[in-house]
Amino acid sequence: MIRRLQYLYHMSLKFELPVHEHHFKLRCFPSTDARQKIFNEHIEIYPVHFRSTEKDSFGNTCVYGTANQTHDHFSVDVEGEADIDINKKLTDEEYKTGIFKYETPLTKAGTTIRKFHLELESASLFANNFERAFYMMNMLYDDFSYVQGVTGISTTAEEAFDLRRGVCQDYAHILLAMCRLERIPCRYIAGMIPGEGATHAWTEIYNEGEWRMLDPTHNRECDDTYIKISSGRDAKDCSINQGVFYGGGRQTQEIKVKVSEL
């Protein structure tokens, strides 16, 4: 069974004052992998003087380039279709997963997460990484509330868990922090799910040779409606836009995502 989804991704930046010599590196383009096949993709970037495409170290598609002319508005529109086959596995050899086993500044467990983790049932009660992570996800879900506006893009797992409130990025970081305390290879996924709104974030847990997706915000294993945009150790590796420019003052970013079934 293959599910076909259509997606639209829009990101715009508004600058209070005009900018020039704008160099950008964008990471907001779903790529084809074993599980999802991307086709009919169309990318629009405005304004742009030069652009080029590459894959980063995690295999994420990046478009980098420059917008030389003075502008006060910058936008990216991506649309395409994805065929998702839930029976296709993402596999990896164990020795290649080391990079995903250790904490990063955003997924470092501090005293609050460590304390919570210590009070969990013993890891030996679980058959494998996936079941263990699933259990930790359940426990996190029960003790954390989805609230927008209390955390930001640079909030760490520990800070969010201290607040016991946050959004999908925070749920994902906290689950990763707990898995990494046990050296379970796990990674951060940025992506899209059906409906209209913002991008979503979830996790992948390495289990017996394959990567399995868990969505801690919804407390469930991901199905074939999840479109992956990028993966990495944490949200920073998946940052949608890393740019520098002259001028600008305050800037406002707007992101709109729409995913529907065909």
Binding site: H23, F24, K25, S52, E54, Y64, T66, Q242, G243, V244
Partner: peptide, 17 residues
């Protein structure tokens, strides 16, 4: 700054790309 430390005031954008 578009590949490493983004707050860097020095550096050459895209040299790493």
């Amino acid at each position: 700054p578009v590949n490493f430390y983004r707050e860097s005031l020095i550096g050459i954008p895209h040299i790493f790309d």
